[in-house]
């Protein structure tokens, strides 16, 4: 193969690679971006019905309810202005508890209950999801309540 043809092949394969990349990225991106909303945005109806998104906030004390022996649990998340009711059926993460910041993935149903298929509470007792932290900061400073979550850390 001549150097000229080689360059052509090289150029062609790079172009092909870039085109492939752009193609896959656009396709895969379209459906897999998940937006985060805080409870106030959900209450204001800013969220799409029937589409997956993430919602996060603090789980208020006394909001977690479970029928004895059932896998389904109902709780709320709040940004101290509004709350969203969440329903989840499955094993909750170890660090899920009242007073903790969490993020849930799922959809809103017709009754305005957020049906979660995944609940995240990260792996450190001091952890506060940054989205939750920011949205809490914006509305209210829950100071003591957040501090109380940190178990035994000096």
């Amino acid at each position: 193969m001549t150097p000229r043809r080689k360059r052509l092949v090289l150029f062609g394969s790079v172009l092909l690679g870039v085109a492939l990349a752009a193609g896959i990225a656009t396709l895969a991106f379209r459906d897999n971006l998940q937006y985060f909303y805080n409870p106030s945005e959900v209450a204001a109806g800013k969220v799409p019905v029937g589409k997956r998104f993430r919602v996060g906030g603090m789980v208020p004390n006394g909001s977690v309810h479970r029928e004895t022996g059932s896998l389904t649990v109902n709780f709320e998340v709040t940004d101290f202005e509004n709350t969203v009711k969440i329903s989840y059926s499955g094993v909750l993460p170890d660090l899920f508890r009242e007073g903790q910041g969490i993020i849930a993935h799922g959809k809103l149903d017709n009754q305005g209950v957020f049906v979660a298929d995944e609940v995240l509470a990260k792996h450190d007792e001091k952890y506060m999801p940054p989205e939750v932290r920011d949205s809490l900061k914006k509305t209210h400073t829950p100071g003591t309540e957040v501090a109380a979550v940190g178990a035994s850390k000096s």
Partner: peptide, 28 residues
Amino acid sequence: LWPLFMDAFSLGKISVGPPYFNAIFLVP
């Protein structure tokens, strides 16, 4: 990095889900 850009330019807080990564890993 996309979520970082979106956040930095205040275009909303997003996360890119595993299906995206699965697709872009599978195709090549």
